[in-house]
Simulated scan of single mutants.
Amino acid sequence: MDFTEIIGFSAAILTTAAFLPQVYKTWKTKDVSGLSLPMLLMFFIGVFLWLVYGFYKESPSMVSANAITVVSAFFLLYFKIKYSKK
């Protein structure tokens, strides 16, 4: 593994780990009032595109971070739709 991928994995761990507490908190409290649906949709699409880009660039750090984050973003989208007051 080269130095560039070490930097990539370090960034991947930090940015992915930073996102997980929000998913956990939303799951536990079922409070989605502070989450914006348009932001979540744009974020999900953006992370998905980063994932595709990572595959094209053959970057394990980019693929692993964005694979985890796209799943997390999907859960937040799901929670937002499921728990939003109608």
Rank of each mutant, 00 (worst) to 15 (best):
T26S: 15
A12H: 03
P38N: 07
F19S: 05
T15C: 10
A17F: 12
S36I: 04
T4W: 12
A18G: 13
A17P: 07
A11F: 05
Q22V: 01
G8C: 10
Y24K: 12
F44P: 00
T15M: 10
F44M: 00
L20H: 04
L20N: 06
L35H: 00
P38G: 09
I45D: 03
G34W: 14
A18T: 13
A11I: 12
L20D: 09
V32R: 11
F9K: 07
S33E: 13
K25I: 12
M42F: 10
A18N: 11
F19I: 08
F19V: 04
G8W: 05
M42P: 00
F44A: 01
F43S: 07
W27K: 09
P21I: 13
L14N: 00
T15F: 00
I7Y: 15
L37K: 06
T29C: 10
T16H: 02
F44T: 01
F19P: 01
F3L: 05
I7S: 07
I6K: 14
G46D: 00
T29A: 10
A17T: 13
K25V: 11
T26K: 09
P38Y: 09
L20K: 05
Y24T: 06
K28L: 09
L35Q: 02
V23M: 13
S10W: 04
G46T: 03
A11N: 08
S10H: 03
T26Q: 05
L14V: 14
S36Q: 06
F19K: 02
S36N: 07
K28M: 08
Q22W: 00
T15E: 03
K30Y: 03
G8R: 01
I6Q: 14
L20E: 09
T4N: 13
T4A: 14
F43M: 12
I45N: 02
S10N: 04
G8Y: 02
S10E: 05
E5R: 09
I13V: 15
D31W: 04
E5I: 14
L41S: 05
G34V: 09
Q22Y: 01
D31C: 05
T26D: 02
T29G: 10
L37E: 06
Q22A: 01
D31I: 03
G8I: 05
V32E: 10
L40A: 01
L37C: 05
I7C: 11
G34H: 11
